[in-house]
Amino acid sequence: MRLLPALLLLLLVCGCASNRAMVKTEKSIYQPGEEIRPEVIATGLGDTSWLGVFPAETPPQSALEATQHILDFTTFYNKSVVFVVAPAEPGHYDLRLYGDEQEVSILASSSFEVQTAAQPISQAEILTSPTERPTRLSFPVPFRLPPGSAPTAWIGFVPAGVEPSNSTSSRLSFEYLKGRTRGTAYLLAPGDPGNYDIRLVSSDTQSQVLDQVAVRVMGNP
């Protein structure tokens, strides 16, 4: 029995020397601007660990050197949703995981391809029906948007009846689309019961409503 702690210590030393990490994507081909929700299986990451999208031809570099080539990135710490956005240009790309901002080597990577869709998205759409939701709970709202939207295009709750031009100033919980052409936003239903719209709006400044769906928010039972 006294050998067991020693065995564990040995395993621990081996463990430190052979930490591994994996990055996986759910498919190998994405459309431009499509949301990518990768699986990242790793440990011992720093609080500033991050996952970046790079052109496949980018040589393996330290985190600091790599920053000039990043097309999109995400961190993990205290972040409830992890996604990156597929580049707008068709081609081959890598997802690369760095342990922290000072990391000198790539911990893991995964390749994917971006191909233009056979039937490109022609109009913005919120892919949910008019619905009833309880207050203060979030729920998924899938959406589509033609490529080339402003980075500050957003989707979110607005009290029903608000003028389209006042959408941005009246918005409640919302999420920026960050260049995504298709993906899922998670919106928090307002705390006060009532009638609301979920609106997909072109940008913070233009406030053109591209699509909207009515939602009735009910008090929690």
Partner: peptide
């Protein structure tokens, strides 16, 4: 927070981790 944690179990193979857990 507007979003619950989006996470699920997945398959992977870190043999040392499994050994450490078992031991």
């Amino acid at each position: 927070s507007s979003t619950p944690y989006l996470v699920h179990f997945t398959e992977a193979d870190f043999p040392l981790y499994q050994t450490v857990v078992a031991a």
